[in-house]
Amino acid sequence: MKFRSFNAPDSNAPDRPLVTVFCAVWHKQPNKLELLRSHWENLKAQSIPVEPCYIFDNGDVAPDWLEAPWHSFDAPLTIYEAWSAATALAQTNYIMNLNMDDRLATNAVQTMVATAAATKSALVGGEWLVSFDESHLEQDFVVEDLWKTNFIADWPPKAQADLRLGSGTGERGTYGLGDTLESETGGAVVSQLFRQPNADQIDRRLDLLANAGQQKMQNHTHSYDRRPVLFRRGLASRISTSSGQ
């Protein structure tokens, strides 16, 4: 299998982002370009810069307006193969996934990086607010108070306002980087931020984030026995129930 890379970031740039956010752009994805455009806008709206990494498969190429790093593989990829490729290609301290029809709060990446730095964690996970239509795709929103939302264990989720998924809190019993929730409505993955294993140290920008976020992180994080994972008690993302790959 071969691939080509475009808009490659400068690996020596002094102000390179701390986080790569990767996304599989599946060649059979309905409304692919519309979703890609609002996804890219969501990443540009983040309160700290992020480095996108879009993975195209089956020889697909990005539209001319996508001014972000992207890679085109000449054969079809499963979503897991695309994620594997993105993880291997990323060169930043942290990496995270954001599916085509999911969106981050504008301060989500900053919140999770600050949490990771303040708590010296290698893996931080956010909580999701479930969206039952496409209204979230172009919305700007910030991390919300977890306790102002509701959790109901029904699966597939039933339409209800302010419904959280319950993965970040442990209410649904699914933790961890690769937890995939499958249902009749499609698939969804809990968005997580984790440090690259070859990152020997967190640079000064992380220290500044840690200092700024230390007080906020107190009493807002908790860990689970048997897993070296810290979950942020806040709603960092909005997830759609309507797609899968």
Rank of each mutant, 00 (worst) to 15 (best):
P14K: 03
S223H: 09
F141Y: 09
E138C: 00
S240Y: 06
E144Q: 11
F73G: 06
D60M: 14
C23Y: 00
E144W: 00
S11V: 06
S191T: 05
L18W: 02
N12D: 10
V142T: 05
Y80P: 00
A86G: 02
F22Q: 00
Q139P: 04
L35C: 09
E81F: 04
Q91F: 04
D102A: 08
S240Q: 01
K28W: 05
F22R: 04
R16Y: 02
A114I: 02
E127F: 05
V25S: 00
V229K: 02
H39R: 09
S240N: 12
F73A: 13
I79P: 11
L235H: 01
P69I: 04
S135V: 02
E134A: 08
S191L: 07
F132K: 12
H71F: 13
T149M: 14
N97W: 02
W70F: 08
P157R: 05
W83P: 01
F132W: 10
S242Y: 12
T78W: 11
N219K: 14
P228I: 00
V50G: 02
T185D: 13
G176N: 07
T174Q: 15
A82Q: 08
T106M: 13
V113T: 05
S5A: 14
A8V: 06
L43C: 11
L165Y: 10
S135H: 06
Q215H: 15
A188T: 05
N7K: 06
S191F: 02
R103M: 13
R4E: 09
D140C: 10
A86P: 03
W128P: 00
A236E: 09
A159S: 15
S183W: 12
Q29E: 06
A212D: 11
R4Q: 07
H136Q: 08
T185P: 03
